[in-house]
């Protein structure tokens, strides 16, 4: 095995154990891993931001005389006015641009992607062939409408509205339980990945190497 890979495995194993030590309690090993992590990941982020955005989208565009890119660059630089007390209002302009963009993109996209799509999926014939699909269609319709009624804010919860909202909570609780149970398996596999690394890539080869060393 190449030396830098061996070093990497040992380093990675050390970090893995350091993070797991947090499960017991906060300790110097975790603190060290945490600070290294923050330093390295932020450094990574800076480099990616530079090469993928500043270099590719700003410097390259200026090289091709696409002068329009000066505007976002100036807006980006305007963010730095935050460090000055007098001129800090200038940083509101790029912020306003981003928020306007966010709101303008979100409104139609969420109507289409959430509201229209899920309404479409819900509207189905309730009376269909077969008892089971019919029941499912009724349950689905009931769940969606009662769930929506749960979210009503300005309607007092009394009479039928109260019953419907209560039923809505019932459906929500089923969803929470089911979604929790559904997610468990995926989370377990992440842990398995780490255990596999620790045992198969680190402990076992190390023990084997030691064995070779002493066993001839």
């Amino acid at each position: 095995m190449i030396w830098h890979e061996l070093l990497g495995i040992w380093l990675a194993a050390g970090f893995t154990l350091a993070i797991y030590s947090f499960l017991y309690k906060d300790n110097p090993a975790y603190k060290l891993a945490e600070h290294i992590y923050v330093g390295v990941s932020t450094g990574y982020l800076i480099c990616i931001a530079y090469w993928e955005v500043i270099d590719k989208k700003v410097i390259a565009a200026l090289g091709q005389h696409e002068w329009i890119v000066i505007i976002p660059t100036l807006m980006g630089l305007a963010m730095f006015t935050r460090f000055s007390k007098k001129a800090s209002w200038v940083s509101r302009i790029p912020l306003a641009f981003i928020i306007g963009y966010t709101a303008g993109v979100a409104a139609p996209n969420n109507i289409q992607g959430l509201l229209i799509e899920h309404s479409y999926a819900t509207i189905n014939p309730v009376l269909t062939a077969g008892f089971a699909p019919q029941l499912n269609a009724i349950i689905m319709l009931l769940g969606v409408t009662c769930g929506m009624i749960y979210f009503f804010f300005s309607v007092e919860r009394k009479g039928p509205i109260k019953v419907a909202a209560r039923l809505g909570i019932f459906f929500l609780m089923i969803y929470f339980g089911v979604a929790y149970g559904y997610m468990v398996m995926g989370r377990e596999s992440i842990l398995i990945g780490r255990l596999n690394f620790l045992i198969l890539d680190w402990i076992k080869p190390t023990l084997a190497a030691i064995g070779r060393l002493f066993g001839g």
């Binding site: 309404s119 509207i123 269909t128 269609a137 409408t145």
Partner: peptide, 16 residues
């Protein structure tokens, strides 16, 4: 939401 609920219910009845 009320309009939406009514449309969904009505739509399901019509589809039936």
């Amino acid at each position: 939401k009320i309009i939406l609920t009514i449309l969904i219910l009505l739509g399901s009845v019509l589809m039936s």
